[in-house]
């Protein structure tokens, strides 16, 4: 399946979703308009007037897509980046925590995977606990980690990044253990006949052959670190960041603000995953592999 054969179906579905959205906007915001008309003791608005009114409410139950995009445009392009009302400023705060957590998580994940592959005792004892660690809903503990670390004086970027780290190390460990073990018997035996040391086997065989697995895991890890950073921003009293925007919006009923923060987060996630995807194809190209055939 080439990229071209996907475009038209995807666009069709997107168009359908937008159409359903507009229908929902009218349906969900109409009660408010009728209510207003009743209170003002005027005639309920006619159909065409109702439609235009439902799409221009200040605090709609469901904002129309164009309202959300106008808000995004207003808060990104028309505001100074340093302003506290600029969405770019908030997105940058979230992004920096995401990236820091992602880097630590990836490093930790790779280190653990190397240990697991080279030490049988570590494999048998650590691996089950790595899996168990993910059944703990870490996002639920996020507020506690933030508040507790704040109490001892660690605040700012690091607590949020730690949550991202916890979330992102797991896919990297699982993917890298698989990847470092992917060379088959014959290849390992060949290294053996060269009387290669363990380090040589690692750098010349295991590491290169784990690359496709690494990048597949990194895509998952980067998306999940963003979620971690956003949730990590919620309990700090809504200071800054996309998570704080969400929370502030929900306190004051600013639905348009919530939706614009949500769209910004989505765009951020998409960009991050795309960057990792690009790095993936670049690295595989330099290694002389075909991107499609190599992916696990």
């Amino acid at each position: 399946m080439t990229a071209g054969s996907k475009t038209i179906p995807v666009l069709t579905i997107v168009a359908i979703i937008v159409a359903i959205w507009y229908a929902c906007v009218i349906w969900m915001n109409a009660p408010f308009e009728y209510d207003q008309a009743e209170r003002a003791k005027t005639e309920p608005p006619g159909f065409s007037e109702l439609i235009s009114r439902t799409m221009a409410q200040e605090r709609p139950v469901l904002p129309a897509p164009h309202q959300v995009f106008t808000e995004i445009y207003k808060t990104t392009v028309q505001k100074k980046i340093t302003s506290k009302r600029s969405l770019v400023y908030h997105a940058w705060i979230t992004l920096s925590a995401t990236l820091l957590g992602f880097l630590i998580g990836t490093a930790l994940g790779i280190a653990l995977a190397v240990g697991i592959v080279h030490n049988l005792a570590m494999d048998k004892s650590v691996m089950p606990w790595v899996i168990t660690s993910q059944t703990i809903p870490i996002l639920a503990i996020a507020p506690m980690i933030i508040v507790v670390l704040n109490a001892v004086g660690i605040s700012g970027l690091l607590p949020k990044a730690l949550i991202s780290t916890y979330l992102s190390f797991f896919p990297v460990v699982v993917g890298m253990v698989k990847g470092l073990r992917s060379p088959d018997r014959a290849q390992l035996d060949l290294m053996h006949t060269y009387s290669a040391s363990r380090a040589q086997t690692f750098w010349k065989l295991r590491w290169p052959s784990s690359m496709p697995y690494l990048f597949t895991s990194l895509k998952v890890a980067v998306a999940i670190s963003l979620v971690g950073a956003i949730v990590g921003e919620m309990p700090t009293g809504a200071v800054a960041g996309l998570g704080a925007r969400l929370l502030a919006g929900s306190y004051y009923g600013q639905t348009i603000q919530i939706w614009s923060a949500l769209f910004m987060a989505a765009a951020l996630a998409a960009t991050l995953v795309m960057i990792v995807g690009l790095a993936h194809t670049q690295v595989l190209k330099r290694m002389g592999q075909k991107p499609e055939g190599a992916a696990p």
């Binding site: 069709t12 579905i13 929900s250 919530i258 989505a266 996630a269």
Partner: peptide
């Protein structure tokens, strides 16, 4: 047709921070 349209979208949405819809 619908499958080809929904699969990439579904994959895309899976990577999004959906948890953010909670306040809504």
């Amino acid at each position: 047709f619908l499958q080809r349209g929904l699969l990439p979208l579904g994959n895309f949405v899976s990577a999004l921070p959906i948890i953010g819809v909670a306040p809504i």
